[in-house]
């Protein structure tokens, strides 16, 4: 799967921002991962550990927040969360909990967002 390219993009983004902010150390990184992306948080975490070795990011605490799926049903206008069968990563099927239709718009759950970092920098 593509956790590797994602992890790579995350590391580049964080290091870039850290440098622009004269960070001497990165203490914490928060990443939001939508439940509907084809990304497995555990695999992502493992790869981030590998990729951050010998960078400013090494040793930083990596917080992965899973973003639940919210939908907008085009059949009955229901807005909100949905029932996900996530017994298997690939079997997730989204449908409206109100009317059971699958004619819907996904509002959240597709993100891979580098949210923020906590850094140490000179005064």
């Amino acid at each position: 799967m593509h956790e590797l390219s994602m992890a790579d993009a995350i590391v580049k983004t964080v290091l870039d921002v850290a440098e622009k902010n004269q960070a001497e150390e990165i203490l914490e990184v928060t990443i939001e991962v939508g439940k509907l992306t084809m990304l497995n948080p555990e695999q992502l975490r493992f790869l981030l550990d590998v990729l951050t070795k010998d960078t400013l990011l090494e040793g930083a605490e990596i917080i992965i927040e899973e973003i639940p799926v919210e939908i907008n049903c085009l059949s009955c206008n229901y807005k909100g969360s949905t029932n996900l069968d996530d017994s298997d990563h690939y079997l997730m099927i989204v449908k409206c909990p109100e009317c059971d239709e699958r004619n819907l718009e996904i509002v959240t759950g597709q993100e891979c967002n580098v949210k923020n970092i906590r850094i140490e920098k000179p005064d």
Partner: peptide, 8 residues
């Protein structure tokens, strides 16, 4: 530092 960079 706020980043809010969504790779998707």
């Amino acid at each position: 530092v706020e980043i809010q960079h969504d790779i998707m």
